[in-house]
Design a protein around this nucleic acid. Sequence first.
DNA 1: TTCTATATCATGGGTTTTTATGGGATTCAA
DNA 2: TTGAATCCCATAAAAACCCATGATATAGAA
Lengths: 147, 147
Amino acid sequence: MTLFLSTFINKLDKKGRVSVPASFRQCVVKHSFQGIVVFGSYKLPTVEGMSFERMERLSQNVDTLDIFSEAQENLTAALFSDTHMLPFDGDGRVLLPKLLLDHAQITDTVAFVGRGATFRIWNPTLFETYQAKARQLIQDREASQNA
Amino acid sequence: MTLFLSTFINKLDKKGRVSVPASFRQCVVKHSFQGIVVFGSYKLPTVEGMSFERMERLSQNVDTLDIFSEAQENLTAALFSDTHMLPFDGDGRVLLPKLLLDHAQITDTVAFVGRGATFRIWNPTLFETYQAKARQLIQDREASQNA
DNA sequence: TTCTATATCATGGGTTTTTATGGGATTCAA
DNA sequence: TTGAATCCCATAAAAACCCATGATATAGAA
């Protein structure tokens, strides 16, 4: 399994732990770091997730920019300072940092949403709303194109 | 762990000591010098930090740069005027030199900010301001590209 | 099929270890 | 000898580790 697929709803326990869906864990186990890499989305109330390897590749792309460029400076600031490495415990759970829980307005249940090479972590209710709006936008666009 | 990631806020005690975040220490323990290498940023009110090994590589690269380039100017200032080696004490803390505390306007709390191969040490309040600006610039850039 | 043994998974909770922090004591250097 | 730096230990909170349970799925035998 190399792709993050489908949606899973899991519980957040009192200690702040949540099980990463087994199929998502499969996408990561063969890699060097046993866990996931996450950061708060800049545009949406959700948490972006991926494997450590993908994050490394992202960071290499940043490195190829001019070392003293302004763009490099800003991208580096954003990429690394807000990123968290979350190791699995023995049972495939991770501890979500409070800052990210707040950002995504997550309290007791968590939606893991596959997006191919990455995934997102949502408050399930917010995800439903977001999903509905996205569908609506697609329909509107089709309607305007056919008009 | 090869990358400095995330942001940690720690306290400066009366003796001027501060705990280096455990995950940052992991990036350094396998190297020869048990500690970090720091210098005041040339452009920002912050302290640049990295492993001793990376500092060595930086100093080797300085020679290959154009003598009159801005890069040369920056690196020379950084590398040879104001660099400190800060060894860990038994509990993973370092003693920040007064000159650097003043330069970064640090008094009682310290933000360790990951930047991949390096990190920065900020006054947490100043960092928030800087970070907000960086994010704004990224969004402006994206907006202009999509226009 | 139906029943049973096995494996996986999400979840809960107890225990141990790590971490950040404070402070006393000792060493060092000007 | 006096202030600073280093070493050592204590503590509380957080994180990591370990094991148990119930639900679900799977496989194989009757």
